[in-house]
C-alpha cells in the first residue's frame, strides 16, 4: 500500500491489439512520484497506444494502467487536438474553462511559453513548434502534478526543447511527475530519471539512463598501421563490431583498450592514438529495438548525451 502511494503511474500486464495486430504485449512498469520517465521507441512501437490507455481514452484488452494523480493530470497528445479556426488564445481559453481556471492563468501561460505575440493568430497559421507549445500550455493549465506528454519535442527548435527540459526539471524539483514519449533516446535522456524502451509493443529496456550507458560502453576509435589486419584479428577474437571510418580509423565496440592492444600485438600492427567515443543514444535505441530508424530529432551535444541526472 505504501509502495503504491509513492507511485504516480503503475502499469502491469498491459495488452492491446487492433484487428489482430498486437500493439502492446504484457507491458509493465511504474513511475515513482517526483520523477521523470521517458517512454522511448520507434514509430509504431506502442507508445501512443499506451498513453491513450493510461489516460482512459482507449480500453486495454487486459492489464492495468493506473495513475495516482492527487494533483490532476496534464496531457499533450500526439494529435494535438487544436482547432485550426480558433486563435491561439481562444484555443487556450476553451480548455481553461474546462479546467476551471481564469483568464489570468491563460495570460500567464501565454507569456511563459512565449505565445503572447501569436495570441491573436489562428492556429492554422502558426508553425508546428508553436502548436506544440500551445499543446504544452493546455497541459499546464490546471498546474497538474502528473504530466503525460506524447511526443512533446515534435516540431520544437533547440531553444524550445531546452526550455521544455528546464520546465520538466523544475517540475520534478517541485515534486511533480512526468511521463513523456520520444522517438529519440538522445532527446529523452538529458531530462529523465528512467527510460522505458518499447519495441514492437514490448518493453525492451527499463532502467536508468546511466545503467543503459553502462550496458553500452564507449566505442574505442583507434588509429592503426593496418586497420584491416587489426579488424580481422579482433573479429577472430569475437569482437565483430568494428567499423572502418572514412578517416581510416577503426571504431571498435565492446573491446577494452588492453584487448585492442593485445590484438594489435598479435597482428603485428602498430597502434596509434586510441580515443573513447560514447555510443550515440539513438544507436543504442536502434540496437535495443532492432530497428534502423534514423534519429527523429537533431542530436544534442555529446556532453549531454546521457545527462547528469
Amino acid at each position: 500500500m505504501s509502495a503504491a502511494r509513492s507511485l504516480a503511474v503503475s502499469i502491469s500486464g498491459l495488452h492491446k491489439q487492433f484487428e489482430g495486430a498486437v500493439a502492446l504485449r504484457d507491458v509493465g512498469f511504474s513511475v515513482p512520484a517526483g520523477t521523470t520517465a521517458a517512454l522511448v521507441g520507434p514509430p509504431g512501437s506502442g507508445k501512443s497506444t499506451l498513453i491513450h490507455i493510461l489516460l482512459g481514452l482507449l480500453r486495454a484488452d487486459s492489464g492495468v494502467a493506473e495513475t495516482f494523480d492527487g494533483g490532476g493530470i496534464g496531457a499533450v497528445l500526439q494529435q494535438r487536438g487544436l482547432h485550426p479556426a480558433r486563435t491561439v488564445r481562444a484555443q487556450l481559453r476553451v480548455y481553461a474553462a474546462a479546467a476551471g481556471v481564469d483568464d489570468e492563468r491563460v495570460d500567464a501561460l501565454l507569456a511563459m511559453l512565449r505565445l503572447d505575440e501569436a495570441a491573436a493568430t489562428r492556429v492554422r497559421d502558426v508553425p508546428d513548434g508553436l502548436r506544440t507549445r500551445l499543446a504544452v500550455a493546455q497541459a499546464l493549465l490546471a498546474q497538474p502534478r502528473l504530466l503525460v506528454l506524447d511526443d512533446p519535442f515534435e516540431g520544437l527548435e533547440s531553444p524550445e526543447r531546452a526550455w521544455l527540459f528546464d520546465y520538466l526539471r523544475a517540475h520534478a524539483r517541485r515534486g511533480g511527475t512526468t511521463l513523456f514519449t520520444s522517438q529519440s533516446l538522445a532527446a529523452a535522456v538529458p531530462v529523465c530519471d528512467q527510460v522505458i524502451v518499447l519495441s514492437a509493443g514490448s518493453v525492451a529496456y527499463q532502467g536508468s539512463p546511466r545503467r543503459l550507458r553502462r550496458n553500452h560502453p564507449d566505442r574505442l576509435v583507434v588509429a592503426a598501421s593496418s586497420p584491416i589486419a587489426l579488424a580481422t584479428t579482433l573479429a577472430a577474437q569475437g569482437f565483430t563490431d568494428a567499423v572502418m571510418r572514412s578517416d581510416g580509423r577503426l571504431a571498435v565496440a565492446e573491446a577494452s583498450r588492453a584487448e585492442i592492444e593485445a590484438a594489435a600485438a598479435l597482428a603485428r600492427v602498430h597502434l596509434g592514438e586510441v580515443v573513447a567515443e560514447p555510443v550515440h543514444p539513438d544507436r543504442v535505441l536502434a540496437i535495443l529495438t532492432k530497428s534502423s530508424a534514423p534519429p527523429a530529432y537533431p542530436a544534442p551535444a555529446p556532453a549531454t548525451m546521457y545527462g547528469t541526472r
Binding site: 491513450h52 493530470i73 496531457a75 487536438g81 482547432h83
Partner: peptide, 17 residues
C-alpha cells in the same frame, strides 16, 4: 463532429472525464 475531425475529443474527454 469537429471534435473528431480535429482530434479535439481526446482533450475534451481528458478535461471532462
Amino acid at each position: 463532429g469537429d471534435e473528431y475531425r480535429y482530434r479535439g475529443m481526446d482533450l475534451t474527454a481528458l478535461f471532462t472525464p
